[in-house]
């Protein structure tokens, strides 16, 4: 049996991706939680996992041998990110601009360019109860977390345990990479006009990727909810509602996991997990 991979995303930060993915992973009991929000991973603050080791993540960047470069500029012309410049008979390489495609090395007729490794972050493995906690962390100042996410997703175990992918906010490359292998996407939304604008962006993204998806309405009040209205108008499945609750906020601010402490939230997330699992199963029947 292959495991179900559920990505949790939202158009903006602070909507509740981490609280949702952490609690779903915790309520599933035997599961894998992968923190792809590599610029500010915080799922580990809740799980406080027992450390099982760290792996560094590298990218390959060009290394120049000045003696061999004859100034043909093929690398400068090739690089679409403009990571290379040729000035005063000398090639300049901008390491931070490089996207590690390797093209400059491949096309250099003089073999003046080779590759060197550069550490851009790390992956930390740990365990908390029955949850495997895998955290990616991008070093400060690095341009792109995509290589770390690619590596993170290789940690998905071959077991029937469900996988919860805590995505970075927004809808850029780094989010696309995080949802690429997901079977289902949970979009967390806030009941504000701004929240709807961002929800719309991630909706477009998951549709573009052809991912089955549903919306979880967070911070719900007894008032008009523009995010709910958006879902109704666009015929998007509403997976559940989390109330705007001070008790929940307090547990969260002390980095506690509500489903491990509150019966009410255990039931809420259990129901959510059940709904999502059913959605994924139905989807597999329709689109095997």
């Amino acid at each position: 049996m292959i495991n179900v991979r559920i990505a949790v995303l939202s158009g903006k930060g602070g909507t509740g991706k981490t609280i949702v993915s952490v609690n779903m992973a915790a309520v599933a009991e035997e599961s894998t939680y992968i923190d792809c929000d590599v610029e500010e991973p915080n799922g580990h603050l809740f799980f406080k996992p027992r450390d099982l080791g760290t792996e560094e993540v590298f990218v390959r960047i060009p290394l120049l041998d000045d003696q061999l470069c004859d100034g043909c500029r093929r690398c400068v012309d090739f690089c679409r990110f403009n990571a290379l410049a040729y000035v005063n008979n000398r090639l300049i390489v901008f390491d931070d601009v490089c996207h590690s495609c390797g093209g400059c090395v491949m096309f250099c007729p003089q073999q003046a360019l080779s590759e060197k490794s550069k550490v851009i972050g790390e992956i930390r493995k740990g365990v908390s109860g029955g949850v495997s906690v895998i955290t990616g962390r991008l070093n400060t100042g690095e341009a792109s977390g995509v290589p770390i996410i690619k590596r993170l997703l290789t940690y998905i175990p071959r077991s029937p345990k469900p996988v919860f992918i805590d995505c970075p906010p927004g809808s850029a490359c780094i989010v696309m990479e995080s949802i690429k292998d997901a079977d289902y996407c949970i979009l967390v939304a806030e009941p504000t006009t701004f929240g709807v604008h961002n929800l719309n962006m991630v909706c477009e993204l998951v549709k573009l990727f052809g991912k089955p998806h549903g919306v979880l309405l967070n911070k719900c009040l007894d008032a008009y909810n523009p995010a709910e209205d958006y879902c109704v108008r666009n015929e998007i499945k509403i997976l559940g509602r989390i109330p705007f609750d001070k008790a929940l906020g307090r547990l969260n601010s002390y980095a506690r996991i509500p489903v491990r402490e509150s019966e009410k939230y255990r039931e809420l997330f259990k129901a959510l997990l059940h709904t999502v699992t059913k959605e994924v199963r139905d989807e597999t029947v329709v689109n095997p």
């Binding site: 690089c79 679409r80 403009n82 990571a83 901008f94 601009v97 996207h99």
Partner: peptide, 8 residues
């Protein structure tokens, strides 16, 4: 250009 506009 996608990136590195200043360099280009």
């Amino acid at each position: 250009s996608q990136g590195g506009a200043g360099i280009k």
